[in-house]
Amino acid sequence: MTTRFDDGPEFPPDDPLAVILRPPADHLGPPPGRYEAIRRAATRRRLLRAAVAGVGLSCAVAALIALPLHLTSPESPATPSVPLAPPATSGPTAPATPTPSPDRRTLAPTDPRPTAEPGTPTPSTGGRTGRRPPEDASTPTKRATRPQEPSATPARPPATEPTTRQTATLPTPQRATQR
């Protein structure tokens, strides 16, 4: 594309563009008080821009201060939230975990079970074992009734004898009675 630069006369005499692009210069005088109004508006706008810039700068400074603090903090607050969750879901049915809480010590005298608890950390498991001991105690007694029979012959080796005697003694009388 070849371009013709504007070194010579721009328009031929009969060019309609001369009418459009070379209009007579018009002047429109300002209304009274226009200069003062423009100056006031410019001052307001300058102050507004300065205020916006100040707010933006303060926000940036606050972000620069808060960001390192936020990056260093998240490790520590994550830990306390974790142990608080399980007791809320498990509820009162699991008495084992929160043994060191003082409320249960206050509740302890009311319940008959906690009387066995005062033993420091173990009572939580001891509570369960506290229930079981009677069962365990009962079962050994049942078992004890049977081994008590062989206990009459204590001097013999204990490992094989009760089993063999239990199996041997119990069926035989039943079979003997049934038969």
Binding site: H27, L28, P30, R39, A41, A42
Partner: peptide
Amino acid sequence: AGWCRRLVDDDETAHEIASEAFTRLW
């Protein structure tokens, strides 16, 4: 303002545009 007046419809609009241009300048 006279230049703006040739491009817009009325004097008031021309004054508004010229005033806004000077406001942005200052």
